[in-house]
Simulated scan of single mutants.
Amino acid sequence: MDFSLTQEQQQFADAIKRWVAKDYNFEQRKHIIRSEAGVSDTAWSALAELGAMALPIPEAQGGFDGSAIDMLIVMQELGRGIVIEPYFATVLGAEFLKQAGSHAAILEQVAGGEVKLAAALAEKQSRHDLFDIVTIATKNADGFVLNGVKTIVLHGAQADHLIVSARSSGNQRDTTGISLFIVDAKAAGVSRRDYRTIDGYRAADIHFDQVQVPASALLGVEAAGWELLDAASDYGVTLLCAEAVGVIEAITNATLEYLKTRQQFGVPIGKFQVLQHRMAEMFMEMEQARSMATLAAVKVSSSDVEERRRTVSAAKARVGQAARFVGQSAVQLHGGMGVTNELPAAHMFKRLTMIELSLGDTDHHLARFVAQPGFKQAA
């Protein structure tokens, strides 16, 4: 299979790379993190002008109908620049709308960079099991009433609309009885507590207290939202794997440069064979992660649900292992400086740590992988 980029894909990647180098360098990023908003309207507008917002949106809604492979390219470049804008949160939210086949007007606004989205899926008790839901959706004459709390919603306080999972029937951990809704983030009864995560991103805990939403807010079929939730989450996992590859490449390059310039006993420490071996191991981990992220991007749209789940979980587990090894190795090779905020490597390591924990950590996806039908027979 030919994994080389098309001319259009390479041009798009180069455009984002130039923007990051010119307008989103490390010092500018630190300034944005320290700001009250935690994100940059200027950077968001630039992403929209580059076409990054329109890329995954269907042509009918003013987008480019980009594939997961196209998105892999974007996420890798954003990963290299450790860009903290709410791009991932928005395109994940847009994926729910795309798969549900509804709210075309909001998708048009996403394509134009006019609105931001966030996926409010996790709860305090759920950890990585997105079907573990106690937020309740009660049907009434005007639609539905939502009550509950969602935690660690990435860029939840910066979003204009929220994708919310709620239980309309069944028991707490049933995959049946789940409904999905799009909710105006400023609707009566919605309260958000914004905070900074360890990697400089923003997240929020969101309370829904008697939040009335119309029947049109329902995504898909009432009480049958698990398949949509599972599929869209796998798309999100694929994007995270791609971003991780970009971060891994950036931290590997930064470490190699450090070994070339840091001197000990009158020579660059990169001359020491044991450190050369570690760099070789980091490179191999990076290439394995790249291959698995690419495979996930190819298979995430597969009509074979078991194949999609199996491949995406295998990729997340392998990329998570690579992220941990490369990140920890980079910190070790940088010495004490590797954990200081003055160096980009420390920020990259923190982002890799958060990616590994997002939408299921390595252990979760290993368990999901082996639980898929056919695993024991294949083994």
Rank of each mutant, 00 (worst) to 15 (best):
D2Y: 10
Q11C: 08
K17C: 06
R18M: 11
V20I: 15
D23S: 14
D23Q: 11
Y24K: 01
Y24I: 03
N25A: 08
Q28N: 09
R29H: 07
E36M: 10
G38L: 04
G38F: 03
S40I: 06
D41K: 10
L47G: 06
A48Y: 02
A48S: 14
P56S: 07
I57N: 01
E59A: 15
A68K: 01
I69S: 09
I69M: 11
M71F: 09
L78K: 01
G79A: 07
P86N: 08
Y87S: 04
Y87N: 02
F88W: 13
A89G: 02
V91C: 06
E95R: 12
Q99A: 11
E108K: 12
A111I: 06
A111D: 02
L117D: 04
A122E: 05
K124P: 01
S126A: 13
H128S: 15
D129H: 09
D132H: 13
I133M: 05
I133C: 07
V134L: 08
T135P: 01
A137T: 08
A137N: 05
T138S: 13
K139A: 14
K139E: 15
V145K: 05
L146G: 04
N147P: 00
K150E: 05
K150H: 06
H155M: 08
H155N: 14
Q158W: 00
D160A: 08
H161S: 09
L162I: 10
R167T: 03
S169R: 06
S169L: 04
G170V: 05
Q172P: 01
D174N: 09
T176I: 10
T176N: 11
I178W: 00
I182V: 15
V183T: 05
D184I: 05
R192M: 11
R193N: 13
R193W: 06
R196K: 12
Y201W: 08
A203K: 03
H207T: 15
H207G: 02
V211S: 03
V211M: 07
V213A: 05
V213S: 03
S216V: 13
A217P: 02
L219R: 01
V221Y: 06
V221I: 15
E222D: 12
E227A: 12
D234G: 07
L240V: 08
T252R: 09
L256E: 14
E257W: 08
L259Q: 09
Q264W: 15
P268M: 09
G270W: 02
Q273Y: 13
V274I: 14
Q276M: 12
M282F: 11
R290Y: 11
M292L: 15
A293W: 01
L295H: 06
K299W: 04
E306A: 14
R308T: 06
T311A: 13
V312M: 06
A315W: 00
V331L: 12
Q332I: 14
L333T: 05
G336F: 07
P344Q: 06
E356A: 12
L359N: 11
D361N: 15
L366R: 08
L366M: 13
A367G: 08
R368P: 00
V370T: 13
Q372E: 09
A379N: 10
